[in-house]
Simulated scan of single mutants.
Amino acid sequence: MSKTPLALVTGASRGIGAAVARALSPTHRLLLGGRDADALGKVAEELRDAQAWPADLGDLASLGTAVAGIDRLDVLVHSAGVAELGTIEQSDSASWRRNYEINVLAVVELTRLLLPALRAAGGHVVVINSGSGMNTKAAWGAYSASKFAARAFADTLRLEEEPNGLRVTSVFPGRTATEMQEAVTAAEGIPYSPDDYLSPDSVAAAVLGAVSATPDAHPTDVIVRPRRR
Rank of each mutant, 00 (worst) to 15 (best):
T178S: 12
S132Q: 11
R119C: 04
G41I: 13
D195Y: 03
S13A: 13
A44V: 13
Y192I: 10
R225A: 12
A120H: 03
S93R: 15
A142W: 05
T111I: 01
D36I: 05
A55W: 02
S212D: 14
G81S: 10
A121K: 08
T111P: 13
M1A: 13
A206S: 14
A117M: 07
A61G: 06
H218V: 05
V224Q: 02
V43F: 07
T4F: 07
R229P: 15
Q51C: 13
A61R: 14
A37D: 14
E182Y: 09
V107Q: 06
R227G: 08
D92G: 15
L57Y: 09
P5G: 14
Y100P: 00
L47D: 04
A177G: 08
R98I: 03
D59M: 02
Y197D: 11
V224G: 04
I16K: 02
A39M: 11
T111M: 01
A205D: 15
E160I: 00
G141Q: 12
I70Q: 02
H28V: 02
D216L: 09
L47I: 11
A80R: 09
T27V: 07
L63T: 02
A21H: 02
P163K: 00
S132C: 11
T214I: 08
S199Y: 12
L166M: 04
A7C: 05
G165F: 00
V125Q: 00
S144Q: 04
A68F: 01
E89I: 11
G11T: 08
E84P: 00
V20T: 10
Y197Q: 12
V222W: 06
F172S: 04
T10I: 06
P163V: 00
D201L: 03
V127N: 15
L157I: 01
Q90A: 15
T87S: 15
T220E: 11
E188G: 11
S170P: 11
A145P: 00
V77W: 00
H124I: 10
I128C: 10
A217H: 04
E162L: 02
A177Q: 11
L63H: 02
V108G: 01
S95H: 13
A106D: 06
S93V: 15
Q51A: 15
I88F: 13
G33W: 10
A7L: 06
M134G: 12
I102P: 01
L40N: 07
E179I: 02
L24W: 06
V168S: 00
L105I: 09
G123M: 00
L85W: 05
